[in-house]
Amino acid sequence: MSTQERASVNVQPAEAERIDRGAGNLKWRHFKGNILTVLGWFSIIFGLGTLLVLILDVLNRATGIFSGGQNWLTWEFFNNFDSRFAQRAGAKAAIVGTLYTISLTILFAFPLGVAAAIYLEEYATDNWFTRLVEINISNLAAVPSIIYGLLGLQVFARWLLFGRSILTGALTLALLVLPIIIVASRESIRAVPLSLRQASYALGATRWQTVWHVVLPQAVGGILTGSILAVSRAIGETAPLITIGALTFVPFLPRDIFDIFTVLPIQIFNWTSRPQDDFRSLAAAGILVLLAILLTINALAIYLRNRYQKRY
């Protein structure tokens, strides 16, 4: 319809022009969608491209695979303690420290997190206490991790006299990942259909028997997946452990949970802060090990999710 024709059906000229601009430029209106698609792909490729560059750059610095430099990811790297000389430095204390700290973190956080989730899903009534707990969990999930470090320094290291120990580090990390485990476990428990609980009660089971023998076996996949993701978060955490005073230079293995310690991310940070290029390469080797651990763990989580995925 042209402007003249439309004017004959009593449309104001300005209005007619507005409609025309819309209708007449239909190509342009559709083209704007194409622009957005291109920009959308650009955003995604920008993000994933950065990831790829990061990994290739670290790989090259650590092993010299593209530039032909020195390979730092050797047997000595895993078997030597840190040293003032880059050629002799290794990550043994850091890798073992990470292993100890994370094992202890799981020991604290997993039972506590799952128990809290069971309480909130299966026992809690809708009262002020339940709401308080729920608000707390969602707020704690957004508190910066370094604040947990200040909490651990004050409460575990100083008031409870645990010092700068593995125990302090593990308790701090446990509090940090607790909200993640609780949220994932709750979702998984909630997904178990009511009919299964009803069937269990009809057979004369008590509430706990129902939870333990019916609900938890059905929810275990989601609970494990969420907990593994929480562990992978804990493995990469640096700031709270620096704050509680985990050391950067530890030339021995920890003897017990009250010993001082270091972890892989702190070792990487320490090597990155030294100005010599050789230490930067060592840091890259540490990053490769850290990323490899995280990748393995996440693959395990995906495997478990697929294995236990249930449809009702």
Partner: peptide, 26 residues
Amino acid sequence: ERIIQIILLVAASISVLTTAGIVFSL
């Protein structure tokens, strides 16, 4: 059943204690 319920309740209270610990120590 009662004992179990109390244990679970204590676990759920940890989140409140954590917030209280953060605010108090800071």
